[in-house]
């Protein structure tokens, strides 16, 4: 009986997906690049986030960049159209350029089925080495 639980669980989630209200999923307004979701959160990796707080402009009701807060490094998360060479003439610091590159590489910096990867699911707290290094558990104790 317990062997059927994953199947039942999957069916329930898929049914939720096709509730009519969910079928009206919008595309990220104002995004010129095609929708890409490499990190699997269901959201457009290239959605603009001018202040770099992780909340997209559209969710903050912001359609134009905030003066003085524009951060090219934190937009176009998965864009291959931009690269380090593109910034050779601007004043974006190395950290900003690297941040953009790193975000587009999140999918190859981790893999979800390796040894010890079972504890990657969960809230985490985003704090500490255990949260950011491979393995997911600091000292064997996983929060």
């Amino acid at each position: 009986m317990t062997g059927h639980r994953p199947i039942i669980f999957s069916l329930v989630v898929f049914l939720l997906l096709f509730i009519p209200g969910f079928l009206t999923a919008d595309e990220a307004k104002g995004a010129s690049a095609p929708f890409i979701d490499l990190d699997g959160d269901g959201l457009d990796d290239g959605a603009p986030d001018d202040d770099g707080d992780g909340i997209f402009n559209i969710a903050e009701g912001r359609s134009k960049p905030v003066p003085g807060e524009t951060s090219p490094a934190l937009t176009g998360l998965a864009s291959f159209e931009t690269s380090a060479a593109d910034f050779s003439a601007d004043f974006t610091p190395n950290s900003g350029k690297f941040s953009q590159l790193n975000r587009s590489c999140r999918i190859i910096s981790t893999h979800r089925g390796g040894f010890g990867s079972g504890d990657q699911f969960g809230p985490g707290n985003g704090i500490g080495i255990g949260a950011v290094s491979s393995g997911g558990c600091a000292g064997g104790v996983c929060h």
């Binding site: 997906l17 595309e27 699997g40 969710a59 979800r112």
Partner: peptide, 17 residues
């Protein structure tokens, strides 16, 4: 893994391993 947005501010995924 399947993922998609549910509106412009929400996303979801389902992953089998």
């Amino acid at each position: 893994r399947f993922s998609r947005p549910l509106g412009s501010k929400t996303g979801m995924n389902i992953t089998y391993t």
